[in-house]
Write a protein that binds this DNA or RNA. Sequence first.
DNA 1: AGTATATGTTCCGCGTTTAGACAAATTCAT
DNA 2: ATGAATTTGTCTAAACGCGGAACATATACT
Lengths: 407, 407
Amino acid sequence: MRKINPHDFKVARRGTSREINRQIALNLIRAHQPVSRADLARLMGVRRGVASLLVSELLSESLIFEGALGESVGRGRRPTFLYIDSRQRCVVGVDIRATRTYIMVTDLLGRQLGVVSNFQTNREVDVLIQELARRIKQVLTDYKEVGACEGVGVSVPGMVDPGKGRVLHAPTLSWRDINLRDPLAVALGIPVHIENSGKACALAQVWATRSDVIASGNSCFVSISDGVGVGVVVNGEVLRGRHNTAGEFGHVPLSIDGPRCSCGATGCWEAYVSNLATLSRYFGHDLSEPRPRDSETATFTVEDLIARARAGDAKALAALNSTARYLGLGLASIINALDPGRVYIGGEITTAWSLIEPIVRSALRERTLTEFGGATEIHVVPAEDHPRLRGAVALVAAPAFAAPMVA
Amino acid sequence: MRKINPHDFKVARRGTSREINRQIALNLIRAHQPVSRADLARLMGVRRGVASLLVSELLSESLIFEGALGESVGRGRRPTFLYIDSRQRCVVGVDIRATRTYIMVTDLLGRQLGVVSNFQTNREVDVLIQELARRIKQVLTDYKEVGACEGVGVSVPGMVDPGKGRVLHAPTLSWRDINLRDPLAVALGIPVHIENSGKACALAQVWATRSDVIASGNSCFVSISDGVGVGVVVNGEVLRGRHNTAGEFGHVPLSIDGPRCSCGATGCWEAYVSNLATLSRYFGHDLSEPRPRDSETATFTVEDLIARARAGDAKALAALNSTARYLGLGLASIINALDPGRVYIGGEITTAWSLIEPIVRSALRERTLTEFGGATEIHVVPAEDHPRLRGAVALVAAPAFAAPMVA
DNA sequence: AGTATATGTTCCGCGTTTAGACAAATTCAT
DNA sequence: ATGAATTTGTCTAAACGCGGAACATATACT
C-alpha cells in the first residue's frame, strides 16, 4: 500500500501504457531470451498483436534483434527468436579500491567480454583519472571488435553523490568532495556514472542475468573487506536514503564500548569483522595504531590467515572463529532491522566460508528474533564474480531496463 | 532505478491510465481540499476536460462530493469545491496494549469523531474479542449520527501476519499464533484489519492529513514504551520485509554484553531505553527479575519519574539522562542504516523532550557518520495524537487512496 | 449593457489496448 | 502429394482515455 506523494507524482499520459508495457516486454526478453513474439504475448497476458507492436518498437530502437528461427516444438510455423541487442556495444566497469583499481569490459547484459585488468590506485585524484582514462582507452582499442562503449560505471569505496558525480568522502583514499565523474567523462568522451561500492554490489545482484541468482525484491549485500559495506534492496530498488548514505550497517555497534573504528566511533560492527580487525586479533595488537613495519604484519593478508587456519594454525583459526561469530551477530542486526528475503555476502573472508558458516549461523540465531529470521538464506558471492565491477556496469547498462516512474 | 520483477509484474491495460490518474486526483483532493476541477487540472498538468471526467467518476462512486461554490478571487465563474466524502461513514481504530486497550472512531480522513475510550486488556483472547466486539458495537450506536462503519483496524504489540489476520507472537500478551481478525470480524459483521503497532505508527505518519506533517517518502517512527517498536517507511510505503518483521531496531544491540532483554538476547537497544529500563536505572535494580511488590515500584511510571526529575530529583534526572543518551546512540544506528529524511518519536518519554533533547542530539552526533545524518530532523509525536490508533484507522481508510500497482 | 475572465462541459483527434480475422509456415495423417 | 490441423505473425475495427480546442455558464469590472 503505497502513498502517492501529492507534491511529486507522475500523471499517466497517452503514451504511459505503452511505456510500461514496452519495459515489461524488454525485461521479459532479457530474462527469457531467446523468446518469440507469441511467447511474449503469453508471458504478458496480452494479444499477439500488442506484443508484435511492442517488439517492432524495440526493434526500431535496436534494443533487441531478430535472430534465427527457432525449432517448432509441435507443428505450426516456427517462431522468430528475439534477443537483447548487445552486438557492437559494450560497457566498462571500474572498481576503485584503496590499493588497486580494476577494469572490466562487458556487454549490455553484464556478460564479461575480456579479462579483468588492474593497476595500483594512485590517491592523487588527477593522476588517477588520467591513468584510468588512458587505460580504458587502451582496453577499448584492444577489444575493438566488441564495438562502441555506451558508458563507464565506477564503484567507489565511500560516500557518493551520484547525481552530481562527486565523491563526498572516501576515508581509505583520503578523498573529500571530489568531482570524479566529470573530468573522467571529459577525458574519455563517454558518459560516466559513479556509485558507492556497497550499493554497486547490491545493484549487481538486482540486475544479475545468471539464472541461478533470482532477482529478489528484498535483499542485502554485505561486503567484508577493509571496511564493511552494505547495500540494501527494497522492492527491486537500491535503498539510497535522503543523502544517499543508507546502508551503513558497518557502523551500527555490536558494543559501544568496543574497539575503536576508523569512523571515529567505537564498537562498530566493522571494527569487529573487517579484515584489519581479524588480523589484529591474530597478531594480538591494534593494527589501527602505528605498527612496526616488519615484513610479516605489513604484507600478511586475511587470505594468508585463512591458509594458516586451514593448515592447522590454532591461533589463526581462533581469530577466524571470532570474526565468524561477530559476523553472525551483526548479520542478525541487519535481519532484525530489514527482514530481507536473502543476504548476499562477499569479501575475502568468504573463501573460508566452509570453515566459518556454522559459527556464523549459530551466532545469527542467537540474536534473531524469529526462526524465519535465523533461517534467512545466506548466499556467498565469490570474488571471481566481481560484484563491484558488475554493479558498476549495471549503473550504465541497467537504466534502459528500469521500470518507468508512474503515479 | 527499479528493476521490473520478470516473475511478478502488472501489464498496463486499457484502463490503467485512468486508474492511475483517478488515484492521483483522489489524493490531490485529499491533500488540497477544498479544491475545484480547474485547480485539479492545474495541479495535475492535464486539461480541465480530463480532470472533469475523473471527478465525475469519483462522484459517481461517492468517494467525493460537491460542496458549496467557492468565492471567486478575481472575476469569472465561481468554482465548485470538491471534498472527500466522509459523510455517513466512519472507521474504528483499536489499539491493544499490554495493560489497556483503546478505541477511537474517525472519519475516512482519520479525523477523530468522538472521545478515545479504553478498558483493561484481558489476555484471554476469546474474552478480549467478545469485549471488544461489545464495546465497538456500543460506540457505533452511541455515535449513530456518524454513519455506517467501513471497517475496524487493530494495532497489536507484536508480530503479525496481516494477510492471514493472525498474531504470530505478542510477548507482552503471551499470545502465539492466534487468529485475531476473523473472530472479531464475524462478531462485528465488519471487515477487520490488523497490524503490528510499530508499523501502524509509521502508517499514521504516512497517511496523516494534518498539513504540518508533510508525508515524507522516507522516514521512521520510533515508539518507546514497554518495548521499542520501529516502523520504517521507504518510498511512501511501510517496509514489511519477507516475513513482515522488518523494523525491529529495538533488538539491534548497543552492547552485546549489556543488560538482558525481554527477547532473550542481551544488550538490545530496547534493554537500555524502554520505560522498564529507565525505571530500573532509577531504582537501581533489575525490574525484569521478580521484584518486591511494594506499593512504590509496582505502580511507579516513567511519567512519575519525569515529574520528579522536573521537580529536581537528581537521581531521576540522572536515570532520564542515561536513557536520553542511549536513545541518541540507538537513533544513530537507525540513521546510519537507513538515512531517513525524518525520524518520528513517540512514547511517554517524549513528555520530557525539552529536558532530554540536547543529550539525545549530542549522543546521536557521536555515532552518525555524516553531518547530514547527525542533523536528521526528529519530530516528537505526542501521545494525544494517538499514532497507534491513527495507524489502525489508516489500515481501513488508506487502501482507497493507495497508488495502483503498475509495471 | 458590454467586456474580460475563470469555470465546467462537449466534441473530435490520436494513441493504445482488445478482439478477432487472416495469411504464412510447418507438421501430421491420409 | 495433398489436405487438415496448428502455430506464428500481421492486420483491421472497436473500445477507451488523453490532448486540444471550442463553447456555454457565471462573475466582476467598466
